[in-house]
Design a protein around this nucleic acid. Structure first.
Lengths: 249, 249
DNA sequence: TTCGAGTTTTTGGTCGGACCAATTTGGTCC
DNA sequence: GGACCAAATTGGTCCGACCAAAAACTCGAA
C-alpha cells in the first residue's frame, strides 16, 4: 500500500472494492448511500466520500446524485487487475494465467526491441545472464534475481519509457504480490537450455522477430508450469477445506 | 471523464496532476498543504482531501502527516499514461511514439493468440475485414471502423479477458482522445497490400509467430507515419507561435 | 390498469469548523 | 553541529448544516 498505516478511507475503499469485484454488486446496481456507509463503517461521510472517489477513479463505481452505482468491471481502469489478483491467495489460476499471458506478450515485445536496439555493453550483459541461467544448478533466489535483471535489461534496451512504467507496474503490483513468486515463476528445467539458447542466438543476430518468439516461448513455458502449481495448490486447499468441513459436521 | 459535470474535487485533482506531470514538483518536493490548496481553490478541505486521495491512488503523490510530497512519475500507476497524453494537444510526438509502440506490441501479441485460437467464423470475419482494408479507396472513416473491428476480433479470439481490459483502456483513454485519430492512424497506402496480405496468410495458416510479426509490422508502419504527421503539426504550430510572437513584439 | 404531474424524500456536492495525533520548524543551549 | 523542547503546522477524523439533483411516492385522469 502507500507505506503509511491504512486510514479509515483506505479501509472503506478496500472493502467496497472487494465486494464489487466479488460480484456483490452487478453493473448498474445501486451502491449503498454515503450516509448508509458512514453508519455501517461507523465513521463520517467525508471518509466515505474519499473512498468512493477512489472507486470512481478505478472505474468500478459511477457516482451521481441520486445514488452511486457499480460499473462494469470490463470498463475499469487497468489498475483494477492488481486488485483482482489480491482477492485470493494464492490467486485464481485462470486469472493468473490471463494476466501472465499478457505480461509475457509485453516482455516478448520488449525483447524484440531490445534485440534491435541494444548496444554492445547491454548485449554482453544479456549474454552473460543467459549463460548463468542455463546452469540449472543455480540457487532459486539467485536465478530469480538474474531473471529480474534480464527483464530490466530488455526494458532498458528497448528505450521505451512506457515499457519501464508497465514493467514496474506489473512487477511491483502483480508479480511481487504472489506468494512464493520467486519459486513459482521459473523456467522448467527440461526446457531451459533450448529456450535460453534461442534467446541468446536471436540477440547475437539482432533478430527482433526471433527474440520475440523465443521470449514468448520462455514465458509461455514458465506460465504453464506456474498455473499447474497454482491449480495443484488450489486443489490441495480445497481438499483440506472439505476434510475440515467434514470434521466439523 | 465520468460522464457527470466535473466537481470541485475533479478540478483540483486535474490541475494538481498536470502541475506534477509538467514537472512543477520534482519527486520528493513538498506539495502545498491542504489548507493552502483550500485557500488557493477557494474551497473546503474536504474537496482538497478527495483530490489528493486521487493523486495518491495514481501514484504521483505521497500523503503523510507533516506534508504531502510528489512521487516519482516512473513509479506511478499505468493510469498516469493517459494523463501524460492529455497534457498537450496534439500530444507530444515522442510520447505518442512510445505509447503506441507498446500498444502495437500488445496488439501484435493478441494477433498471435488469435491466429492460434480463432474459430472458423472468427477467421472468416478477419479475412473479410482484411480484404476490405486492402482496397485503398475505402472512405477514411469506414476504414477506421474496419480497423477497430479487426482489433476487437483479435482480442475476442485471443480469449483473454485482460486483453479486453487493456484494449478498452488503451483505446478509450488513449487513442480516442487524440485529435483526428481516425485520419491519423492509418496504414500507409503504399504498404497496405503486403502488410495486410501477410496478416491474412498468417491467419489462414494458423501461424502465431507470423501473425505477431505481420501485425507488428503493420502497427509500426502506422506509428511511423502518425509520428511524422504529429511532428509536422507540432513544427507548424511552433512556426505560427514564432511568427505570432514576432508580430507582437 | 397505466401514465403523467406534482410532491416528498433521498441522494450527492459543498461548506465551515472543531479537535487530535503526528510531523516539522524554530529557538535555545551545550 | 547536535540535542532538546515548545510551538506551529500538518494530515486524519468527525459533526452538522445547507443546497440542488435525482429517485420514490402519491394521486387523479384516461
Amino acid at each position: 500500500m502507500q507505506g503509511r498505516p491504512p486510514s479509515v478511507t483506505d479501509r472503506i475503499s478496500s472493502e467496497l472494492r472487494d465486494e464489487i469485484l466479488r460480484g456483490r454488486y452487478q453493473a448498474g446496481d445501486r451502491l449503498p448511500s454515503e450516509r448508509e456507509l458512514a453508519e455501517r463503517f461507523d465513521t463520517h461521510r467525508g471518509a466515505v466520500r474519499e473512498a468512493l472517489k477512489k472507486l470512481e477513479q478505478l472505474g468500478i463505481a459511477e457516482i451521481r446524485r441520486g445514488g452511486a452505482r457499480a460499473a462494469p468491471i470490463e470498463e475499469a481502469s487497468l489498475d483494477i487487475v492488481r486488485h483482482l489478483m489480491e482477492l485470493d491467495n494464492p490467486p485464481d489460476p485462470h486469472l493468473f494465467d490471463q494476466i501472465f499471458e499478457v505480461f509475457g506478450g509485453l516482455f516478448s515485445h520488449a525483447a524484440r526491441l531490445a534485440a534491435e536496439r541494444a548496444d554492445d555493453e547491454q548485449r554482453a550483459r544479456v549474454a552473460a545472464i543467459l549463460a548463468q541461467l542455463t546452469h540449472d544448478d543455480l540457487p532459486v533466489l539467485e536465478e530469480h534475481e538474474r531473471i529480474q535483471e534480464l527483464s530490466e535489461l530488455f526494458v532498458e534496451a528497448s528505450q521505451n519509457m512506457i515499457f519501464a512504467l508497465v514493467r514496474r507496474g506489473l512487477h511491483t503490483e502483480f508479480i511481487e504480490r504472489i506468494e512464493n513468486h520467486k519459486t513459482l515463476l521459473r523456467p522448467p528445467d527440461a526446457e531451459r537450455a533450448p529456450l535460453l539458447g534461442a534467446i541468446a542466438k536471436a540477440m547475437a543476430e539482432r533478430d527482433g522477430p526471433a527474440a520475440a518468439n523465443a521470449v514468448y516461448d520462455l514465458t509461455r513455458a514458465v506460465r504453464i508450469q506456474a498455473v499447474a502449481i497454482l491449480e495443484a495448490e488450489r486443489d490441495r486447499r480445497r481438499e483440506e477445506d472439505r476434510v475440515e468441513g467434514a470434521r466439523r459436521r
